[in-house]
Amino acid sequence: QPRALVRRSWDRMLRLGLDPDGANARIVADEAELETRRRKSRLRLVVEEMRSVLLRAPDAAPFILVVTDADGVILWRDGAASARRQADELGFVEGAHWSEAKVGTNAIGTALTEEAPVQLFSAEHFEASQHPWYCSAVPVHDPHDGTLLGVVDISGPAMTLHPAVQSLVTTAVRLAEARLMIAQQEALNTLRDRMSAMLAGTSGPALVVDDAGWVAYQQGVRSRDRIEAPAADRSILIPGAGLCLPEKVTGGWLLRPTGDRRASVTLRMRQDPPVLDIHSGTDPLVVPLTPRRAQILAAVTSAGSAGISASDLSQRLYGDGDHVVTVRAEVSRLRRSVGALLATRPYRWAEGVDARVE
């Protein structure tokens, strides 16, 4: 009988209709897409350190080191020349999509699906072509917010598996996560020092954040440690400052008020599709809404300053309290459009927002 982890994965593969005899097509990103994914990955900051830890003598052990992004795309691959040649024959190359949905049960794809360390040996792989291999994979998470960044994997010929391999990969990942935390703090300190000097002679509210929305410096405003990730074409509501238009600076964003410190929103339910008009002393922003998202905002508006819980919102939208996960996912997607105008825990309009429904 297969292990429970393997059985769960095989069940997923059968539902997907994958072929265990290896007729599943390999999808490989082109060079441009691969480079774009590498630039966007925070793992680029630690890949060399992982190489130094896991591949001190690349040809001394017959295995390869693989680092993927959260989609299972192989960003970097290095290691013993003999193992690399065998991996080439399998399509286990840089740029390859190595998720479960593409190549069946494998340590990388299964670790991404389970968000847990996975070691697979030989015939535990779904594809017969992968049976000559072992794979030990450990997910890497952002140490600040827990976001899944990708997977670190060691793979090699099945008969060369050493009992310490999984522990070695786990240790390397923990070191990488610690290094990512240090790197982010160093970057925030650099951004704070530079921007605080630039803003020293100015008055008025200002907030400086990195590209992910982590706060490096604030002047005349009260903010949490993190706001939504800024984008050049979308205003963000900052308590005490009102709607702010992000301005790109080296290493992050500068946010300053665009006008009135209060914002007003009008939910126009009768339009097709419904829209949300946002005013704050400048030209209004118009956000198109799906009917479901309009219903959510209508419920939030009717709840007033007391707000509405995910359970109560589920009851209102679906007639029961069993859709809390669905509600949270929908609100999360909605906040990508309206940002910090919509507060959470409970769901409500943020301080300084006047809301009405028409």
Rank of each mutant, 00 (worst) to 15 (best):
residue 279 H to F: 14
residue 280 S to A: 15
residue 281 G to V: 09
residue 282 T to Y: 04
residue 282 T to S: 07
residue 282 T to W: 04
residue 282 T to P: 01
residue 283 D to P: 00
residue 283 D to M: 01
residue 285 L to V: 15
residue 285 L to K: 12
residue 286 V to C: 12
residue 286 V to Q: 03
residue 286 V to L: 10
residue 287 V to H: 01
residue 288 P to G: 09
residue 288 P to M: 06
residue 289 L to F: 12
residue 289 L to R: 11
residue 289 L to W: 11
residue 289 L to V: 06
residue 290 T to P: 00
residue 290 T to E: 12
residue 290 T to Q: 14
residue 290 T to F: 04
residue 291 P to W: 09
residue 291 P to T: 13
residue 291 P to G: 05
residue 292 R to K: 13
residue 292 R to P: 02
residue 292 R to C: 04
residue 293 R to G: 01
residue 294 A to M: 13
residue 294 A to H: 07
residue 295 Q to H: 03
residue 295 Q to I: 01
residue 295 Q to L: 02
residue 296 I to Q: 07
residue 296 I to R: 03
residue 297 L to F: 05
residue 297 L to W: 07
residue 297 L to I: 03
residue 298 A to F: 01
residue 298 A to K: 12
residue 299 A to F: 04
residue 300 V to G: 09
residue 301 T to P: 06
residue 302 S to F: 06
residue 303 A to T: 05
residue 304 G to F: 02
residue 304 G to V: 10
residue 304 G to T: 01
residue 305 S to P: 08
residue 305 S to D: 11
residue 305 S to C: 03
residue 306 A to W: 00
residue 306 A to C: 02
residue 306 A to S: 14
residue 308 I to C: 00
residue 308 I to L: 06
residue 309 S to E: 07
residue 310 A to D: 14
residue 310 A to C: 03
residue 310 A to L: 13
residue 311 S to C: 00
residue 311 S to R: 10
residue 312 D to A: 14
residue 312 D to I: 00
residue 312 D to L: 10
residue 312 D to W: 01
residue 312 D to E: 13
residue 313 L to W: 02
residue 313 L to T: 08
residue 313 L to I: 11
residue 314 S to D: 06
residue 314 S to R: 00
residue 315 Q to I: 12
residue 315 Q to A: 15
residue 315 Q to E: 02
residue 316 R to E: 15
residue 317 L to P: 02
residue 317 L to C: 01
residue 317 L to G: 05
residue 318 Y to G: 00
residue 318 Y to C: 03
residue 318 Y to Q: 04
residue 318 Y to K: 11
residue 320 D to P: 00
residue 321 G to S: 05
residue 322 D to L: 05
residue 323 H to M: 05
residue 324 V to N: 03
residue 324 V to W: 02
residue 324 V to T: 08
residue 324 V to L: 13
residue 324 V to H: 03
residue 325 V to N: 08
residue 325 V to R: 09
residue 325 V to M: 07
residue 325 V to H: 06
residue 326 T to C: 02
residue 326 T to A: 15
residue 326 T to N: 07
residue 326 T to R: 10
residue 327 V to A: 03
residue 327 V to H: 08
residue 327 V to Y: 02
residue 327 V to F: 11
residue 328 R to S: 06
residue 328 R to I: 03
residue 328 R to L: 15
residue 329 A to D: 07
residue 329 A to S: 14
residue 329 A to H: 15
residue 330 E to K: 10
residue 330 E to N: 13
residue 330 E to V: 15
residue 330 E to W: 07
residue 330 E to Q: 14
residue 331 V to L: 10
residue 331 V to G: 01
